[in-house]
Nucleic acid binder design. Sequence first.
DNA 1: CGCCGTCTTGACTCGCCTCAACCTCGGTGG
DNA 2: CCACCGAGGTTGAGGCGAGTCAAGACGGCG
Lengths: 231, 231
Amino acid sequence: MSKLDESLLRPIPPFRKLSRIQIREILDQATPRRYDSGEAVFNEGAEAERFFLLLDGTIRVVRTTESGEQVVALHIGSGQLFGIAPALGRSTYPATAVAAGECLALSWSASLWHVFVSRYDGFATETYRTVGNRVAEMNNRIVELATLHVEQRVANALLRMINQFGKKVEGGVLIDFPLSRQDISEMTGTTLHTVSRLLSAWEKQGIVRSGRKRVAVTDPHRLVLIGSAQS
Amino acid sequence: MSKLDESLLRPIPPFRKLSRIQIREILDQATPRRYDSGEAVFNEGAEAERFFLLLDGTIRVVRTTESGEQVVALHIGSGQLFGIAPALGRSTYPATAVAAGECLALSWSASLWHVFVSRYDGFATETYRTVGNRVAEMNNRIVELATLHVEQRVANALLRMINQFGKKVEGGVLIDFPLSRQDISEMTGTTLHTVSRLLSAWEKQGIVRSGRKRVAVTDPHRLVLIGSAQS
DNA sequence: CGCCGTCTTGACTCGCCTCAACCTCGGTGG
DNA sequence: CCACCGAGGTTGAGGCGAGTCAAGACGGCG
């Protein structure tokens, strides 16, 4: 196994205050691994034996209902910790993490969590800041689901995606990982049919351009209007 | 100001491992206060200067959309910490906390948070366990809102309420704080009209008994069936 | 006693889900 | 190299769940 470079962790908030030596320690305990598109990193309900840091790619966090429907809880981008059940005193993962596109992640044994927290200055604080952001995001989704119409929810979901994972291309911003109509419907609590209809309509109006598992937004401002249209 | 009794905090998880002397220290720094029904403890967006422990009553945590609609994020029962923005690295409260019925709470300056965490064994761990539970609950609500019908969501909301705040009375379990149709609709993302119709129908079937700001469940089992009815 | 907040109930409407059929494209194997 | 196949996407028709509009009853509090 080739040695991991210290510069990998340097810019990531939880590790920002650490010395080169400390980062070396942390890296030496990490297990790197590649995941194929669609592969599960861990499964809902499984023992939370490890926690993860995504180095490259995008992770989709999914929950499955008893009746087999899927709901996308959130997406994780590179540089973010995930699977941090140990941080919240849980012994099992609350959701399934699936690689959306090819991914590269480090992982550590869950038993190291409290070691990191107590030994490394700023690690806990920064990590809980991340948790706080996710909680805030979840709260917003609850409010959205409870008050907005499907059209607005889909518009907002796309806007969130381009903010988090947008990549500038000529004539717009591309969501930089494979994203099907079905995926979007699972993020917004609707059906792939309705999403397809909306994207078709928006394409005609020049707001988005989309294809097989690919969505680019060409006119974000119009989407903002749609997403916040009152009543 | 009369001295608070140490036995108040003893049974509460974050303080369970502490000595009598430590609890005394903590109590001496606390400010107790009573809140009238409907009074706000703190407001969404305000500087998070204090964090709270609810000693008695029930707190409703509410978010307001730009268009003025309200969404109930969760309810807090006695013995729970709330307004713990500092724990998640936030400097403002993400939601408004309103007393549902008369309440009594202690509060501490936010600057004491990191003191508590570092000085008192088990405080951090137990608190983050609480956060974990709330995150799990939020996740469940997202899944519910995204996949279930209104009838099922209302049934599940009532079940959650009787589990958390239920009080046995003859012929059923009463939700032990004032809860209007409007409140229930704000918890489930629907309208007070629909909630009223559902409760009327359930009352005819002998599943609930309800009145002005009062709901009691007489047949929880039937509600469970309604709440998980497939398709 | 009168008023206002809460609750109820009917009638109507429409957003979005369901059902169904078909299209398109990329990958695979003969 | 081409034919096939299946996953993903599109689009129409129809129906119903639940929101909106509207009117009135109930009941607690000042």
